[in-house]
Structures are given as structure tokens and as C-alpha cells.
Amino acid sequence: MSDVVEMHLKLLFDLDNLIADTEEPSYKKMGFQLEEEASLVLIRKRNELLQQLPKEIAQIYEILKKRYRQAIAPVESEFCLGCFQKLPTELITRSQNITTCPNCGRILYWRKK
């Protein structure tokens, strides 16, 4: 995955979490200002980002998002934080292209140390 694609994908993911949080009742009660059209604006923005992604990545993302609330899972000490399964060694050494968890299918994300 190129840096630009990776950045788009991560921002898309952050925006989807933002949309989900603004819909939480406990969030709404806090009294933050939210434009009436807020979620529509965000949904438009996230759809734009989705279209900028390579088609296959966009498709995988959307399928995963329907299946789980969060399509991307960080990797921590060789574990997928989506399903908490240990990842096979051959996967850990590979970091090019889009990689998904063999157990849950989520897109894996390695944090830079």
C-alpha cells in the first residue's frame, strides 16, 4: 500500500469512528456543538475518501465495515487487536500491500515504532 493510500484509508477509518461517536447518546448529552447536518457532511467526506481509494481496497473496507463496526485492526506484539488471535509468522514479516487477518479478515495495521 502506498503512503497516500494508507493515509486515505486511515483517515476514512477515523472519520467512520467519528460518525459513530457523534451518534452515541452519552456523547450527545455532553453538550458539544454539532451542526444539524453534521453527519451528512461527514458521510459525504468519507464517501469522497472511499472513492479515492483503489477499488479493491474500498470494496474490502466496505464489506468489513458491514461485518464489524471497525474494519481495521492494529497489530500489537504479533496479535490482531480485532480478534486477539496470534498472527502467523509469515504474515508478520510481510508488510507490503493490503494484508488482512487470516482469522477475522480485518485489515491489519502495523504501528510504526
Binding site: 486511515k10 483517515l11 472519520l15 467519528l18 458539544f32 456543538q33 453534521a38 457532511v41 461527514l42 510504526k112
Partner: peptide, 21 residues
Amino acid sequence: NDAALIVSTLLKREELGSTGI
């Protein structure tokens, strides 16, 4: 890049309405 991503997301949140309470 991490900081850049966070700033982008925060500014998107601000677009929905200021977090100045």
C-alpha cells in the same frame, strides 16, 4: 504521519461545530 492523521481528524470534528464549549 501519525500527527498529520490526528490533526486531519480533529479538524474534521471542528467542521461539525466548534469544540469551544
